[in-house]
Design a binder for these strands. Sequence first.
DNA 1: CGCGAAAGCT
Length: 507
Amino acid sequence: MSPAPVTATPPPLLPAKSKNPPPPDHQAVLSHLPHCTSLRALAQLHAAAVKAGLAAHPAFVTRLLTLCTAQGAPPAHLAYARQVFDRVPHPDDAVWYNTLLRGYARSSFPSSAAVEAARVFVRMEMQAKGLKPTPVTLIGVLSACTLLGALEQGKWIHEYVRKIGLDSLVKVNTALIDMYAKCGSLEDAIDVFQGMESRDRQAWSVMIVAYANHGYGREAISLFEEMKKQGIKPDDITFLGVLYACSHSGLVREGLQYFDDMKDHGLIPGIKHYGCVTDLLARSGQLERAYKFIDELPIKPTPILWRTLLSACGGHGDVELGKRVFDRILELDDSHGGDYVIFSNLCANTGSWEEMNRVRKLMNENGVVKVPGCSSIEIDNTVHEFFAGDGRHPKSKEARRMVDEVIDQLKLVGYVPNTSHVFHVEMDEKEKATSLRYHSEKLAIAFGLLNTSPGATLRVVKNLRVCPDCHSMAKLVSMVFNRRIILRDLNRFHHFEGGVCSCGDYW
DNA sequence: CGCGAAAGCT
């Protein structure tokens, strides 16, 4: 769908002059709000609200902003929210700032969102009315940091939180735990958790997810058991965290047991719980069982569930099942470029060339666009970006040389790797260059590793999708160069020490 | 009164 050019602008505020203002029938207006999905409908309702004298009605403005900044809302909606906000003469309610801030924090354009979120925060601080950031403001700022992997900014906010004395609040600490964990510092997350005087269900759940994200499935589980012992009742999200932990650490038996336990707690699994179980079965190699699991769900599976399985078929090299799964996905959604890529890679890896050509053709026929992958790596406060198939970074050549250097070092220690990147060495120069071009992440990692001081911990943050090659690369380099490496892919961390990954992924 | 954690793949 391509939306018509956005011309909607918020209606001007009524000069509240009219003698007999219509009764603020805000209940009626509010009840219509959730049904407005298009910008046009929103603008119409907004106009009606202004006529009803609701332009600055706190509940109305907040709900309007919330709706416009909802997860997955198109950028135009976010821009509209901004206009609504800017047209309020004296936004004197912290909640409005908080809503807008949160909107930026979960926007799909992280880097520009960060700037905007910071501006909103600063503007709030500057308010002559003495508008103080509320706990929710800080939670909003922290979740913006979380989204961006901005550890340094997050630490700064932590200091600020301490300074204004909000560091005893359970919710703020929970946001801090989440921020630290998702920005790669599990140690700081644990510190905050242990320093809390009391912990609610959410605090426990977030800490469980934190361990899970870093590959410490056993620790996540024992935290869950400890939580129950202390009389805190787990909810569906806690269980999601536990299942997530199991699927990321290869704890198949435990995961299935906990999935079963849900009903004893009176909880009904949702699509995300099914997602975890699918992942659990599929990644551990029980591909057929996973297929059956999805097929027999009591609710309609989303393409996401099939996609999870497809990716696992790729990992296990099962092209036959992969094709069946791929067909199931196409029935539901044939516009997702990633599916074609995963499946065609699977075909390539198993030598199914005919099938691969068929997929490539299908992809063109369906007009699917491939977006180049991008990785970034932060070294000494400078962010370096590498795009797949692009040598624009000034150090691209150097990085590529370093990849070769790493490979030579590996040969010296006599390591016999079983991953594809070493095959590149065996290829002729032309082939090698082509292969490496498509592994920008690998280049970024090698570049970063060799440029940091010995023994340093390297954090790879922000949008890094760790391809299996990177994963092996990190493994090997941590061993050869004796570096501690933390790799972050979109959702989870891999800690390498002496060539061993803490995480059960790719087990 | 309204804002605050949460599966998978790219």
